[in-house]
């Protein structure tokens, strides 16, 4: 399966979905004019990846999302739902959600996303701004 890499812009995060290493990374602010259009290829890639993912393979997901708008929040929740469903189906999924250690708001938002999810999400403090 091909990797998916999307370069960061002012309003969209860097996306690096690496099926070879089973490492999925989203890093940066997210407030695109059309959120669904931006996240659609990611949904498609994740669907295919999770379908092909063998049970027992450890998947590491890293999110760093200092600011996301409401539409992006919906898309991120849709992604989390996909990971949660896969986890409930027996896949080995783990997510690190990185927050600025100086920014309480980021932690609060990460907690909101974590709520109701079954798969392990660890909220991790990061030092950089």
């Amino acid at each position: 399966m091909e990797k998916l890499f999307i370069k960061a812009t002012k309003s969209t995060p860097e996306v690096n979905l690496d099926s070879d290493n089973n490492n999925l990374l989203i890093n940066g602010q997210s407030y695109p004019e059309n959120a669904f259009k931006f996240y659609e290829p990611i949904f498609n890639w994740v669907n295919e990846y999770l379908d092909e993912l063998e049970t027992g393979v450890q998947v590491q997901i890293d999110f760093t999302l200092p600011y996301i708008n409401t539409s992006s929040s919906k898309c991120i929740m849709m992604l989390l739902d996909k990971f949660d469903d896969a986890f409930l189906a027996g896949k080995n999924i783990f997510l690190n959600w990185y927050c600025d250690q100086e920014n309480e708001i980021e932690f609060e938002c990460a907690e909101e996303f974590k709520e109701d999810m079954n798969f392990p999400i660890e909220i991790v403090s990061r030092e950089d701004n």
């Binding site: 600011y67 708008n69 409401t70 919906k74 929740m77 920014n103 708001i105 609060e108 996303f113």
Partner: peptide, 18 residues
């Protein structure tokens, strides 16, 4: 509804922060 509540809270938090 669950999603809407969650997104509202996130949006309010981020809006206040902004």
């Amino acid at each position: 509804l669950r999603f809407t509540r969650k997104v509202t809270r996130i949006s309010d938090t981020q809006g206040n922060a902004l």
